[in-house]
C-alpha cells in the first residue's frame, strides 16, 4: 500500500498516516497481521521526526487498529465484527462532517451520491472483515 503524505496541507502528518493506514486496513490493502515498517524506517522514508510516526502508531494502537509487539513490531490487528459498531461516536463524527459540508453549500443529493461512492470504494474492495 502506498502512503501519500501532503506536507503542505493542513492535516497533521501523524493524522494522515493514521487515516491512510485505517483506510488501507478497511479496504483490504493492508491484510490482517501484515507488518508495518518500523517507526525509524517510515520516518526516514517520509523525512519526518520518528516521534511523528510513533504518535500515529500509538493512536492506531489505542484505537485498536494495530498491535505492537517487541519482536514483530507493529502489525494490523485481526478485526472482529462488533454487535453495534455504529455507536454514538460514529453519529457525532458523521453529524459534524455532514453539517460542515452543508454549511459549505453541498446539496443533500450531491452529499448522498458522493458518500455512497466512497462507501462503495471501501466496501467494493473488501466485502467484510
Amino acid at each position: 500500500m502506498i502512503l501519500k503524505i501532503d506536507t503542505a496541507g493542513n492535516v497533521p502528518i501523524y493524522r494522515q498516516i493514521r487515516n491512510q493506514i485505517i483506510y488501507g486496513a478497511a479496504t483490504g490493502r493492508l491484510k490482517t497481521r501484515e507488518r508495518l515498517p518500523t517507526v525509524r524506517q517510515l520516518a526516514g522514508d517520509i523525512g519526518v521526526n520518528p516521534m511523528t510516526v510513533s504518535k500515529a502508531y500509538e493512536l492506531l494502537k489505542s484505537e485498536g487498529v494495530i498491535v505492537m509487539d517487541r519482536r514483530r513490531g507493529a502489525q494490523i490487528k485481526e478485526f472482529h465484527a462488533e454487535e453495534n459498531p455504529l455507536d454514538k461516536n460514529f453519529d457525532d463524527a458523521l453529524k459534524a462532517l455532514i453539517s460542515e459540508y452543508r454549511i459549505k453549500g453541498a446539496s443533500k443529493e450531491k452529499l448522498t451520491e458522493h458518500t455512497l461512492s466512497i462507501i462503495d470504494s471501501i466496501y467494493g474492495q473488501k466485502e467484510e472483515f
Binding site: K4, D6, T7, P37, D45
Partner: peptide
C-alpha cells in the same frame, strides 16, 4: 507542483 511524499509500505518494511 504537488508536494506529496509517496512511500510504499512494502518497500519501507523490506529495507
Amino acid at each position: 507542483r504537488k508536494k506529496d511524499i509517496s512511500v510504499d509500505l512494502a518497500v519501507s518494511r523490506e529495507k
